[in-house]
C-alpha cells in the first residue's frame, strides 16, 4: 500500500527515510505538536511549498527545462481562487471552480509558451518565461480594479474553514475552522505530491529523465522531445496553479508580493537545488529547510547575538537583520558540500 502510494520510489537511505518521516509526521500532527499561530502558519507554508517545489522539479530536475514563470502560474492559481470567491461569494463552489479554472488556464498558457519557445534552445525558453512572468506581474499591478493592484485583496472563505468555527477540543487543542483549513491544505498538497511522484515514476517520467540526460538520444529512439517537454511544462504549470490556490485559501488574501514576486522564484530555485534536483523527495526536504530557515533563522540569530554579546564583532555579525546574508552563506556551503543536493548526498552520491 505504502509502496503504491510512493510509486515504488524508495528514499534509498535510512537517514533520508527518517528525515522524510519526521517531516510527514511533523506536518500531519502540526496543530497538536507545535501550538501557536506561527507554527501552524509555517506548517501550512511548508506543505504548499513542498508541492510547489516538487512541481518545479518536474520541470527543472526531471526535464532539464529552466523556467522563470513558475511563480506566475502559482499566482494564477491564487488569483483564480481569490477572484472566484470575491465575485461568486463565499463557498466551496467558487474555491473549486476558481482552482480548476486557474489550473486549466495555467496549463493553456504554459502550452502556448512551450509551443513558441521549446523548439529552440533551452535558454530562449528561460528568457521567454522571464519576459512573460514580468509582463504578467506588471499587468496585475496595473489592473487594480480587478486585482487590487500592489495591495492585492482579501476575500472570504467558507465559514467552516474560518477561525470562528469552533468544533471542540482534541488532546487539549481547540479544533477550529483554521485547523480544518490547515488539514484541507495539507491533504490536498499531499495528494498532489503523490500524483507528481506517480508521474515521475511512470514510463512518461522515464522518458523525461532520458530527455534531460541527452535529448538527441531520446529523439533517436523515437520520442518526440518537444511534445514530452510541452506536456511536462503544462503539468508543472497546472500543479503550480493548484499550489497557488491552496496558498490563497490559507491566507484568505492574494497580492503580487505573496504570489508573483521574483523573490519566490529564487526561493523555489534554492529549494530544488538544496534538496537535490531530479528527486521529488529533494523538493520536500529543500522546501522544508528553506521555509524553516526563512521563519526561524532570524530568531536563532537573535539568540546567538545575545549569547555572544561579549564578543561585539561576532554579535554584530549575528544580528537578526543580517539573516539574508547567513541564508546566502548557508546556500553557498550547501551547494559546495552537496552538489547533488541533500538527497543526492544522503543516497550516497556526492
Amino acid at each position: 500500500m505504502l509502496m503504491r502510494l510512493i510509486s515504488g520510489d524508495r528514499p534509498r537511505s535510512r537517514i533520508l527515510t527518517l528525515v522524510l518521516l519526521a517531516i510527514f509526521l511533523g506536518l500531519l500532527f502540526a496543530p497538536f505538536l507545535f501550538p501557536g499561530v506561527r507554527a501552524l502558519e509555517t506548517a501550512a507554508r511548508i506543505s504548499i511549498f513542498i508541492l510547489l517545489a516538487a512541481s518545479y522539479d518536474l520541470l527543472l530536475g526531471y526535464t532539464g527545462v529552466v523556467s522563470f514563470a513558475h511563480t506566475m502560474f502559482f499566482g494564477m492559481g491564487a488569483y483564480g481562487v481569490g477572484l472566484a470567491s470575491q465575485h461568486m461569494g463565499r463557498g466551496f463552489g467558487p474555491l473549486i471552480l476558481g482552482s480548476l479554472a486557474a489550473a486549466v488556464l495555467a496549463a493553456a498558457l504554459a502550452f502556448i509558451i512551450a509551443l513558441f519557445s521549446l523548439r529552440v534552445r533551452a535558454i530562449f525558453f528561460a528568457m521567454i518565461t522571464l519576459a512573460v512572468a514580468s509582463a504578467v506581474a506588471v499587468l496585475v499591478s496595473q489592473l487594480s480594479s480587478i486585482t487590487g493592484g500592489e495591495d492585492g485583496f482579501t476575500f472570504q472563505i467558507p465559514r467552516a474553514l474560518g477561525p470562528a468555527n469552533r468544533m471542540g477540543e482534541v488532546m487539549g487543542v481547540n479544533i477550529t475552522g483554521k485547523i480544518l483549513n490547515y488539514y484541507v491544505v495539507f491533504f490536498i498538497s499531499l495528494a498532489l505530491f503523490f500524483v507528481l511522484l506517480r508521474i515521475v515514476n511512470s514510463p512518461f517520467g522515464t522518458v523525461l529523465k532520458a530527455i534531460r540526460e541527452n535529448d538527441f538520444r531520446a529523439e533517436a529512439i523515437g520520442y518526440r522531445v518537444v511534445r514530452y517537454r510541452t506536456i511536462a511544462t503544462c503539468i508543472s504549470a497546472a500543479m503550480a496553479a493548484l499550489a497557488g490556490s491552496l496558498f490563497a485559501l490559507w491566507l484568505r488574501y492574494v497580492g503580487p508580493e505573496t504570489t508573483l514576486s521574483f523573490e519566490i522564484m529564487l526561493d523555489l530555485l534554492l529549494m530544488v537545488v538544496i534538496g537535490g534536483m531530479g528527486t521529488i523527495w529533494g523538493a520536500a526536504i529543500g522546501a522544508t529547510v528553506m521555509v524553516l530557515a526563512q521563519t526561524y533563522l532570524q530568531d536563532l540569530m537573535g539568540s546567538a547575538a545575545d549569547a555572544t554579546m561579549a564578543i561585539p564583532m561576532l554579535s554584530r555579525l549575528l544580528d537578526p537583520d543580517r539573516w539574508l546574508l547567513w541564508l546566502g552563506v548557508l546556500f553557498i556551503l550547501s551547494v559546495y558540500f552537496f552538489p547533488s543536493g541533500i538527497v543526492g548526498r544522503l543516497r550516497g552520491g556526492r
Binding site: P203, T206, V207, K209, R217, A220, R224
Partner: peptide, 29 residues
C-alpha cells in the same frame, strides 16, 4: 524521431546510453 519510428535503429559511437537510468529502464525506453 520519425526516422526512428520508421524503423531505423541508431547506435552512436559514444555508447549512447542513459547513465541515470537503470539497464532495465534503458531497454524499456
Amino acid at each position: 524521431s520519425e526516422r526512428a519510428r520508421a524503423g531505423i535503429g541508431y547506435v552512436p559511437e559514444d555508447m549512447g546510453i542513459f547513465s541515470d537510468l537503470t539497464v532495465e529502464e534503458n531497454m524499456v525506453l
